[in-house]
Amino acid sequence: MNELLHLATDPGAWAALVTLVTMEIVLGIDNLVFISILSNRLPPEHRQRVRRIGISLALIMRLALLSTIAFIVGLTAPVFNLGIVGPLGSHGEPAFETAFSWRDLILIAGGLFLIWKATKEIHHTVDPKHESGDVLDKTGVVISNVGAAIFQIILLDLVFSIDSILTAVGMTDHLPIMVIAVIAAVTVMLLAADPLGNFINANPTVVMLALGFLLMIGTVLIAEGFGVHVPKGYIYTAMAFSAGVEGLNMLSRRASERKHKKE
């Protein structure tokens, strides 16, 4: 209790909390985009439930990982080394390295899964399979789809949760600040899940853009696993620019539709 009172009166702690909450929300966007795209493949009556389950699992995983901080930090220790090192950069650090820790392996596996999933979704969007009958009306198929969606969400929740907690550990030493930041970020994800999912579902071109984001995020995760540091600012700036261009395209299409209706 004394520690909480001390943190509550410490301006530095408040600054760390605001910064960490912002970082956790930004990191949570990647997780939320994946959950939204995956849930939109399900029948409408199951989408909200799967989103809620996915985000709740993200919160549970993050809080569980926070309770084992010493173990999580230990995941950054190399477990094997292939002895391959890239050329040194301007700061004296190698461009890449092959001294892999458990965190690196998890990031690489998560990146490969994201690239595979995004590529599969792009193929489905570009060349959808025409099946006879409404298979989604079959209870067994629906349950299977919901179960498969939740399983895939769990896998990516794990990857994003580890990245999120390691970021929190690197920014502050105070566990209460980490817990509050994680809960605040996941609450924002929970509030934004349905609007984002509905927006993506209502705008087909945004789906392709979001899948492109997932491909980029997957590539960055693999690069991070090989020790290649990609500044997050570049990634989010590219995403914001692309989203801005897509927003202008949407406004242009709506203006064109209104013009045709008046004619």
Rank of each mutant, 00 (worst) to 15 (best):
P78M: 13
H91V: 10
A58D: 00
L66K: 00
P43I: 07
K120R: 13
E97F: 03
I53K: 03
F34S: 02
S56P: 03
L75G: 14
L59Q: 01
G89S: 05
E45I: 06
R49D: 06
L112M: 09
A58S: 05
E45Y: 09
I84K: 05
E121A: 11
A64D: 10
E121M: 14
I72V: 15
F113T: 06
L88N: 02
D104Y: 04
G89R: 09
F34L: 05
S39W: 00
G92H: 05
H91K: 12
S56H: 00
V73I: 11
L75S: 11
F80S: 04
P43K: 08
K120S: 15
Q48F: 13
R41P: 06
S90N: 08
I84D: 07
W116N: 10
M61L: 15
E45Q: 15
S56K: 02
L66G: 03
W102R: 04
I84L: 14
S101L: 07
L114C: 07
L82W: 07
F96R: 05
A58Y: 01
L105Q: 08
P78F: 15
I108G: 01
V79K: 10
I55V: 15
L59C: 02
I69R: 08
A70R: 01
A109H: 03
R62N: 09
F113E: 06
V73E: 15
S39D: 05
P78R: 05
I69Q: 10
L105K: 03
